[in-house]
Design a protein around this nucleic acid. Structure first.
Lengths: 242, 242
DNA sequence: TATGTTATAATGTACAAACATAATATTAAT
DNA sequence: ATTAATATTATGTTTGTACATTATAACATA
């Protein structure tokens, strides 16, 4: 076992177990569906009680990170990502929460003339260039989303920024733009040739398509974003009341 | 104590305790900040162990419903996070809004034994039958959604009702059941043979899949609903803030 | 009166032990 | 070869017990 638990530490054992599990989860084997060590054994190895270990596991189950089945064992949840309607997160934040190491592929930045729709949303003319950001994200050799973003000129992005950082962090820290409101539209689509190529799936395969309009606290348009998610790599969760 | 726990029930004690707590939480006193009965006492009163009660409490804490402090006790979380009153609508209402005339096809009502998942959600035994409602909806010769609903026995549906009426209207007017909370999961799927047949599309075509858990204002489970939407016949919109 | 000390009441952490249940794997029977 | 019975293995449920920690209340002291 690469990791261990410090019984003398003031950090509660279950908390230590939790972080240890998060590290385990990040490992490739487990990401690929391998069973985690079973409770009884793992507890013995870590020299903590099964109950204590269970406390940690249950938390991760509740978070949706792990899935368990009697007899079958404990595995990293496949349907990887979910998104709560309230406090919304950027993609990389969501993934980090789940212990999934995310890579950027084919990151491209360019200046383009906006389409009618984008120009209308941004309330600018179509002859004024906007920054376009494209990227494929996922695990190495397993892309699961293709993103396209357009940013309002007001944001002041030059294209030289480090887009590997979480996007909303970057906007906040380096450009003092705080995104506070998002309107999204979610639907299912068949992958066309372009998308199929990006996501390495067959043409016609189902993708979850998400269109996102992002505003700052003054309700001014900031970003227009399109996301194509490989089916089952993304589950959108919503809680609503009347 | 108004409520109690049935030790002979197959429903796990911690699950019973959980629903009991949800009822308690709904009470006015507790809403107004009164401390819940403390663990040790409550466990004694319910004749379950403290550990078991704790299992239930912790779940609600994790959900953000309860807040605990050492020595201070357990209270209902104030500043209830108002989840963007995305007032949700039934399908026919949604479609009427969009000016589309909707027909029901292949409406089927039956009594079935619930699956594990349904039984768990309803907190009933799997040998207790529930009402299952299936239907295809859309324009004549152009189905665009296949629905399956399961209703909790508590709702009192006989199967003789007129399911052509908007569902939530029917529940409210004829059964005094008011659905107030829904939790949904949305993802993209490929149509299997069964769904493809229902929606008259090719096997493997993309569908938007929506799983919906519906509760009444006492947070009691009412309906479990699955919807398979033909791609592009349905767009889900969400508005969220930070 | 103001402040420091101590008791107390609640939750927090942790263990060990037993039995239940479900899914899978193995074996036996047809 | 297929089906039925059985064993196995991992998680699920539940209890009882013990001690730690922390915020408040009660008390005592200056």
């Amino acid at each position: 076992m690469r990791y261990s638990i410090d019984h003398k530490s003031p950090v509660p054992l279950h908390a230590q177990a939790e972080t240890l599990l998060r590290k385990l989860i990040a490992e490739e084997d487990y990401q690929n569906g391998k069973n985690l060590p079973n409770e009884v054994e793992l507890a013995k190895k870590l020299a903590i009680s099964r109950t204590t270990l269970r406390q940690a596991i249950n938390k991760l189950v509740f978070e949706g990170l792990l899935v368990r089945k009697k007899r079958a064992g404990t595995k990293v949840a496949q349907a990887a990502v979910s998104s709560k309607s309230n406090n919304w997160l950027s993609f990389s934040q969501e993934m980090k929460l789940r212990g999934i190491p995310i890579k950027n592929f084919e990151l491209q930045v360019s200046q383009v003339f906006p389409s009618e729709e984008v120009a209308r949303f941004f309330e600018i003319k179509t002859d004024r260039q906007v920054l376009k950001l494209e990227r494929v994200r996922g695990k190495p050799n397993e892309p699961f989303v293709y993103f396209v973003s357009y940013f309002h000129p007001r944001v002041g992005l030059t294209g030289e920024e480090d887009f590997k950082k979480p996007l909303y962090e970057l906007l906040e820290n380096e450009h003092s733009v705080i995104a506070t409101l998002s309107k999204e539209e979610i639907s299912a689509k068949a992958a066309d040739l372009f998308i199929a190529d990006k996501l390495k799936i067959a043409v016609g395969s189902p993708v979850l398509f998400r269109k996102r309009y992002v505003f700052d606290h003054g309700e001014r348009p900031i970003e227009y974003n399109l996301g194509y998610y490989k089916a089952d790599s993304f589950i959108y969760t919503v809680e609503s009341t009347r």
